[in-house]
Write a protein that binds this DNA or RNA. Structure first.
Length: 245
DNA sequence: CTCGTGACGGTTGAA
DNA sequence: CATTCAACCGTCACG
């Protein structure tokens, strides 16, 4: 039932049961992972998130489980704490990048969350199309670069322009957009900020507007908004509690 | 209907 | 340089 298509430079791209495009064996794009976490934080249920973002339920569950346990939205091999990257000197290079980008001393006793946030910033700042910003600790540059371009192509066709990835053509716009993303992600993983919360609200509103379009396009089980809102609030309280721990 | 989990096939980097 | 292996990925199906 799973249709597959081969995309040069990416590998086997497939379409899951929800109609979403994915690349087998490759992590979801960062903005998709971020949207999953943001939607979960505002109380959207995982099943709704999977339907909205066209990501499989299992993937949403895994990402949220990882996020609740570690506070990280990154794929497991990113921060070099585990996986194959820990064997080589990636962590040293990561520390250098952190010093340059985030002004965090590598020798300072940083918490896991600050390290994660800095790694997120480092990765997002490096996700611009400028070759010298290609990630050194992630995948190899050439493969990652081709994948990133292709994934942007895919999700530009999947998501509305408000939730679509940034335009790779202009660096300054990328930088500003990355700042928006960074502020939203830092507000999630650190303390809440008033200005960034508006950004979160903005992005979530965009996503929710997409939800309306999707629901109008493909009506799910006919459920009234009031009952769903109550369930959303309940689950939101539960997740806020778990997050506060 | 929702959610957690394991199997599966695929990708990636190191050895 | 090609091959092998381990770790990780997302999807799917099951309970």
């Amino acid at each position: 039932m799973k249709s597959k298509l081969y995309v040069p430079g990416v590998g086997q791209a497939g379409v899951n049961q929800l109609g979403g495009v994915f690349v087998n064996g490759r992590p979801l794009p960062d903005h998709v992972r971020r949207q999953i976490v943001e939607l979960a934080l505002v109380g959207i249920r995982p099943c709704d998130i999977s339907r909205k973002l066209l990501v499989s339920h299992g993937c949403v569950s895994k990402i949220l489980t990882r996020f609740y346990e570690t506070g990280s939205i990154r794929p497991g091999s990113i921060n070099g704490a585990n996986g194959r990257h820990s064997k080589k000197g990636y962590s040293n290079r990561m520390d250098v990048n952190k010093c340059q980008d985030v002004n965090i001393s590598p020798s300072s006793n940083k918490t896991h969350e600050t390290e994660e946030a800095s790694s997120v910033r480092n990765y997002q700042s490096s996700s611009s199309t400028s070759p010298e910003h290609l990630p050194t600790n992630f995948y190899s540059s050439s493969r990652y670069f081709s994948f990133h371009q292709q994934s942007q192509f895919f999700f530009q066709h999947q998501l509305p322009p408000s939730a679509a990835p940034t335009n790779p053509s202009s660096d300054e716009n990328d930088a500003s957009d990355d700042d928006d993303d960074n502020s939203s992600i830092s507000s999630i993983e650190s303390k809440p900020n008033t200005s960034s919360s508006s950004l979160i609200k903005h992005s979530i509103e965009n996503i929710l507007s997409m939800k309306v379009t999707i629901k109008s396009k493909r009506p799910l089980s006919s459920s009234s908004h009031s009952s769903t809102d109550e369930r959303i609030n309940n689950s939101n309280n539960k997740r806020q509690k778990s997050l506060a721990c």
